[in-house]
Design a protein around this nucleic acid. Sequence first.
DNA 1: CATAGGATCGCCT
DNA 2: GGCGATCCTATGT
Length: 202
Amino acid sequence: MILGAEFYLRNNVTIVARELLGKLLVTNIDGQKTSGIITETEAYQGVVDKASHAYGGKLTNRTEVMYRPGGFAYVYLCYGIHSLFNVVTNRKDIPHAVLIRSIAPFEGIEHMLARARKGINAKNIGVGPGKVSKLLGINYGLTGQRLTLDFINKSKQKELTIWIEDLNENPKKSEIEMSPRIGVDYAGDDALLTYRYVYNRK
DNA sequence: CATAGGATCGCCT
DNA sequence: GGCGATCCTATGT
């Protein structure tokens, strides 16, 4: 079942980040359907979070998507090479987001391998936010895409490009590890927050 | 207009 | 453990 807006609109981004573990992230790009089970996420808590692109209420062309209501894709280019995929959460004007850091490939693995051929190590495939986007065919041009079917008739878009499905795979507490987020040393105290969630699947 | 730097990755030593 | 790749974004003049 495709997750609806109510899943993303909730006001606690850390709960959404945790509940995204075990869900299926799906793309339909270039006529190729690919998907992976989400195994690692990070929560970014908007204006109060020094690690967030929206810290202090920063609003630019790039971050505008984060201020939309939950259920949009926020994709940005990192180091000039990697498109990192985030899910926007909370209600309009609260710029919270969850970075998807790892997936376990599920469907369309042959398409993923073809995409990976250009510069991906076969080892740890799907582990790391740059690799998630590479495998699923997500690039920064897809920022602002809707992830839900709500209001689909109000737009000209007929089908989704990126969405998330519930497989009823519910990770146990003992299978989830929390730790500080990666690569945010510049964030001072906020670098210590354990907003990273890793799902160790059996 | 110019410029510095980044929520990374793979390959090298 | 270190480094280069590679380009958009944000900021400053």
